[in-house]
Structure formats: C-alpha cells, structure tokens
C-alpha cells in the first residue's frame, strides 16, 4: 500500500511537469496547426541556459527561471518569425513542411548544444537536490515538490492569461477560427509568432524545473518531444485542459510502469498508452471529459 501511494504521489508530481510540457505543445498545435517536433529540444536549450547560470554565476535554477525562460521565449519568437512564418505565408508550401522545419530546428539545436557543451552528462547539484520530506512512511523529493508547485502556478497563470486577457482570448480565437479572428482585427501572424514563443517558454520552464533531478546532455530533448506529443494526443488535440489531464495520466502511468513492471519500461508505458488512445479514443480525454 505504501509503495502504491508513494508511486501515485510521484506520478502526480511528475505529471504536473508533463502537463506544462504538454500545454506548450497543445497551444502551438492549436494555433499553428502543426506538431512541434523541436519541443523537447527547445526544453534542452532552457536546461542548458539554467545550467550555465548555475555553473558560472551560481544562480539557483529556480531563480534562473526568471532569466532563462524569457530567453527561451525569445528563442521561440525568433524561430517562428524567421523559420516557420515564411513557410506559412507561402501558399505553395504545404503545412506539413513546417513540421519538417521543426525537425530541422530540433537537429540544429541539439548539434549546437553538442558543439558548445560536448556530449558529457551534466547536472546541477544544489543543496536541496536530494532532500526529501517524510509523510509517515512516504517520502517526497523536495525538488520534485517545488517543481510541482511552480508547475501549478505556471499553469494557473497561463489559464488566467488565456481566459481573462484580450491577448489570451485572441490566441484562443485564432486557434478556433483564423479567418474570423482576422476579421476581428487580430493579426494572426503576430499571434502565431507569440504562441510559439509562449509554448517554448513553457517547455523551457518545465526543463529547468526538472534540472535539479535530471542529467543534462544534448540528446535529452527528443524523448520529451515524444512525451509532449503523447500528452497532446492523450488530452485531445488543442485542448489545454485536456493537456493537463493527459500530462497527469502519462506521469502516473509511467511511474506505475516503472515501479511495477520495470524501470526500463518506463517510457514504453507511455507509448503503449499512446497507441491505445489512438486506436480506442481518437478524440483523447477531451472526448471523455467534454471539455
């Protein structure tokens, strides 16, 4: 029973982080209509930035959220403005080619990271990296808990933005009907670029939150791109609330897989769920939860 609870709690905590990764992907999917196959790689950039801030300036990873996330946001703006937008504007180029472009962007980011930081594994060892909080017989890792709380705060902040501000409403409107949004005076170009920036910033933040518990190397990204994709499909395309549900389901399922089957099958569990959802629930959790 304790093992079960321990696993469940760990799964929920990691699920909160996955939700942030998934929401970024979902926003981009909703507005740009493409799968961002550079998602995890952009996260990797955020992690390296935070690592640099820690190693060379001694800035705590949680503090460097305020420095690194804006930089990742700007990177997203730059990438979408100069690499994705030109493809959107040319009608002769199929939307599929934007997906290919994200693949290319991802590769370049990985190789740049390898060039600058080499392939060595790096980690951020903070004083609290291995601290735990005991709740009876259950122990909760402190960085995991902090990450979860910040992830929740980020998610709430994002929802506040999406639901209560004109900018957020414009993002949702553009995702729902681009032409109608344009007629309302919304520049879909601006919104598209901005959305990619926001999605990048979110996944960058998630990466930084993972940093105190995770090894960092240039190829850390792709598995998170896949996870983000799984979450997006699991939640139902383009639904931020679905992405939260999807993130938590994936987090819990993976942890249970790791505990009760084998650590090595952890990522495989997610992919099995992915296949099952595609076959049996193509609308994702959105379809079940009616959100």
């Amino acid at each position: 029973m304790e093992l079960f609870l321990q696993t469940l709690i760990y799964g929920l905590l990691i699920g909160g982080l996955y939700a942030v990764i998934g929401i970024g992907m979902t926003l981009i999917m909703g507005v740009l209509g493409i799968i961002n196959l550079a998602h995890g790689q952009i996260m990797m950039v955020g992690m390296y930035l935070a690592w640099v801030f820690w190693t060379f300036m001694g800035i705590d990873p949680y503090l460097s959220l305020f420095l690194a996330v804006p930089l990742v946001f700007l990177l997203g703006i730059f990438l979408s403005k100069y690499f994705l937008q030109p493809l959107i504007e040319k009608e002769s180029i199929l939307p599929e080619n934007q997906v290919l472009m994200t693949v290319g962007i991802g590769m370049v980011l990985v190789e740049l990271a390898r060039f600058i930081f080499t392939s060595d594994y790096k980690s951020v060892e903070t004083s609290y990296s291995s601290e735990t909080i005991a709740l009876g017989n259950i122990s909760i890792s402190l960085p995991m808990l902090i990450a979860f709380v910040i992830a929740i705060a980020l998610t709430l902040g994002l929802f506040q933005l999406l639901m209560k501000t004109d900018l957020g409403r414009s993002i949702r409107a553009t995702a729902q009907d681009k032409d109608a949004a344009t007629l309302m005076g919304i520049s879909s170009k601006k919104i598209t670029i901005l959305t990619y920036g926001i999605g990048s910033g979110l996944v960058g933040a998630a990466g930084i939150l993972l940093l105190p518990m995770y090894y960092l190397y240039p190829d850390v990204g792709p598995i998170f791109t896949i996870k983000a994709f799984v979450i997006t499909i699991l939640g139902g395309l383009g639904s931020p609330i679905g992405a939260i549900a999807g993130g938590i389901v994936l987090g819990v399922a993976e942890t249970f897989g790791a505990t009760y089957i084998s650590m090595g099958y952890r990522d495989a569990v997610g992919l099995v769920i992915f296949l099952l959802v595609l076959v049996f629930l193509p609308g994702g959790l959105k379809q079940v939860l009616k959100i």
Partner: peptide
C-alpha cells in the same frame, strides 16, 4: 457565422471589441 464556438457568448462579443 464563423463564431468562436468554444467560447461563451460574452467572450465572442468581447472579441468584436479589441481595438
């Protein structure tokens, strides 16, 4: 009509007045 169908009536109206 081209409404934003996943928004409420009031939000749809707000979208008309952004500028």
């Amino acid at each position: 009509r081209k409404l934003f169908n996943e928004m409420t009536v009031e939000e749809n109206l707000i979208m008309g007045a952004l500028h």
